[in-house]
Simulated assay, not measured.
Amino acid sequence: MSPRPAARCLVDLSAQARLRGGAPAGPPRLRILACPPSGAAAGYWRFLVRADVHVLGVQYPGRESRFREPAAPSLGALAAEAAASVAAAPWAASDVPLVVLGHSMGAAVAAELVSALEHEHGVPVALLALSAKAAPATAERPGTSPASDDDARLRAALDPDAPGADEALVRWLRGIGGTPEAVLANPELLALLLPVLRADLRLSMSHDRLPAPVRSPLLLLRGAEDATVDAAAMDGWRALTAGPVEHREYPGGHHPLAAARDRLLDDLAACARPAGPRRAGPR
Rank of each mutant, 00 (worst) to 15 (best):
R209E: 15
R66Q: 10
A71T: 06
N186M: 05
G43H: 02
A139V: 00
K133H: 05
R283K: 13
R66A: 11
G102R: 07
R273M: 13
E246I: 01
P142R: 13
V183Y: 15
A242Q: 12
N186R: 04
D95K: 15
P24I: 06
V245Y: 04
D266F: 00
R63T: 13
V53D: 13
L101K: 08
A93T: 09
A185S: 07
L210G: 07
R174W: 15
I176H: 15
Q16I: 06
S74Y: 03
G164I: 14
A42E: 11
C271G: 12
W45H: 08
H103P: 10
G164T: 14
R273C: 10
G22C: 07
A92T: 02
E167M: 08
P163R: 10
R283P: 06
L127E: 03
S94Y: 15
A83W: 01
L190E: 10
L30N: 06
S85E: 14
A72D: 08
G57I: 10
R174E: 04
A17S: 12
A185F: 14
R68W: 02
L101D: 06
G26Y: 06
V86C: 15
S94A: 11
R155P: 03
R68H: 07
V245E: 14
L117W: 02
H119E: 10
L268F: 04
A116N: 11
R31N: 05
H255E: 06
D262W: 04
P195M: 02
D150R: 04
A156W: 02
G276I: 01
V229I: 04
T179A: 10
G62H: 09
P97F: 12
A168D: 13
Q16V: 08
D208G: 10
L193F: 12
Y44I: 11
V196K: 08
A182N: 05
R215E: 08
R20M: 09
A270G: 12
L10E: 05
L48D: 07
L117H: 04
V125H: 05
S204K: 03
E249K: 12
E167P: 10
G76N: 05
L220R: 11
I32Q: 08
S216M: 01
S94W: 15
G223V: 04
P124K: 00
S216D: 05
L19A: 12
R68N: 13
V11K: 04
D266A: 15
R20C: 09
G76M: 03
L220N: 12
P70V: 08
L113V: 01
D52L: 05
P61L: 03
A84I: 01
A40Q: 13
L219V: 00
A84L: 13
G122H: 00
E64A: 11
A110C: 09
D149A: 02
G26P: 08
Q59M: 05
A182M: 07
L221R: 01
A71H: 08
A260V: 01
H254Y: 01
T241R: 02
F47C: 14
A79K: 10
L240V: 01
A191S: 15
A260C: 05
A110M: 11
L210P: 08
R8T: 11
P180G: 09
S74T: 03
V99P: 07
C9Q: 09
R153M: 05
A280H: 12
A233V: 00
